[in-house]
């Protein structure tokens, strides 16, 4: 507590006990908050240790060179499938999401923009299994695509869409107004200002959003189970009517099998997925941090 003003009474016993109580309260309070942090950090450490220790001992040369055979073999088909599905989903989502982000940031007037922003935010919260089942009903059954790359990629694109849209909007909004005004003053039209001036400036933020969406796409399981299916073979290049493997399926399906070879594949798959997701998170954090620093210095 502060210094008592000169000339005031000396601390009484009651005041001393109040001071003690407040100090004890402070220590207990800080202790409780630190405990909360330690619980979360400890769980995080336990997850990372489980995945990386067991995963690294499960990775052998054959895991990345062979395809799955029953409950053994390798994961080459799943690694390829995860890349095909995630890249497919992102390629579908980026043009739409980016255009939507530009619209929300640049033409934010009337009722359309707030409505779309709201729907996008609610779409983020729709459970991924619901999107998977929607994909099953509409594409796998309705359009007759069966389990396929196309159905899986569209399901992932729906999940990635609102993330890309909202991060693109944030990035576009951070472009200084003066840059826009200067461009308009030179006689540039909407599309020139946005595509040639704002978009390049906002690019790091937009890329961060795309990277995060890619991480989400790589880590998703539920929307793929009944759209992409599973296959023990390499992708045959067909967009419809042929199922494809992916790493997250291997984690789920193989860890519950009673065979050591299956467990090893599950740990190896978890290793790859987690490593990829963490790398993307760290990279995007570093990019964001540099941007934030740049903004603070302004």
């Amino acid at each position: 507590m502060g210094i008592p003003a000169a000339g005031f009474t000396v601390p009484t016993a009651r005041r001393r006990s109040t001071r003690l109580r407040r100090r004890v309260g402070d220590y207990l309070g800080w202790g409780a908050t630190a405990l909360a942090f330690v619980l979360l950090g400890g769980a995080m450490v336990s997850i990372l240790v489980t995945v990386f220790v067991r995963g690294s001992s499960a990775i052998t040369w054959s895991v990345i060179t062979q395809v799955t055979q029953g409950v053994g073999g390798g994961l080459l088909n799943a690694i390829e499938g995860t890349l095909v599905l995630a890249v497919g989903g992102i390629v579908l989502a980026v043009p739409v999401g980016l255009a939507a982000g530009i619209y929300l940031a640049e033409f934010d007037e009337g009722m359309l923009a707030p409505t779309i922003r709201f729907l996008a935010d609610v779409l983020v919260g729709v459970p991924s299994i619901v999107i998977g089942y929607f994909g099953y009903v509409t594409m796998v059954v309705g359009l007759g695509w069966n389990f396929s790359v196309a159905a899986g990629s569209v399901a992932l694109a729906i999940i990635a869409l609102p993330y890309i849209c909202r991060t693109a909007e944030m990035a576009m909004r951070q472009v200084p107004r003066s840059m826009r005004e200067a461009a308009y003053a030179l006689g540039a039209k909407d599309h020139t200002v946005i595509m040639r001036i704002c978009l390049p400036t906002a690019l790091p933020g937009i890329l961060t959003g795309v990277l995060l969406a890619l991480a989400i796409a790589v880590g998703e399981t539920a929307p793929l189970l009944y759209t992409a299916g599973w296959s023990n073979y390499m992708w045959n290049g067909h967009l419809t009517n042929s199922p494809i493997g992916y790493l997250t399926y291997a984690i789920w399906a193989f860890v519950t099998e009673p065979f050591a070879t299956a467990h090893a594949l599950a740990y190896a798959a978890a290793f790859f997925v987690t490593l990829f997701v963490l790398l993307i998170s760290v990279v995007s954090r570093v990019v964001l941090d540099r941007n934030a620093g740049w903004r603070r210095r302004r």
Partner: peptide, 26 residues
């Protein structure tokens, strides 16, 4: 602060199925 916060935020980045694996074996 940023790095300790980031460590907690990473809990949100871990895929659901990896939580399942960790829950199942640990």
């Amino acid at each position: 602060r940023p790095w300790m916060s980031f460590f907690v935020e990473l809990l949100a980045a871990i895929p659901s199925v990896v939580y399942g694996l960790w829950g199942y074996v640990v």
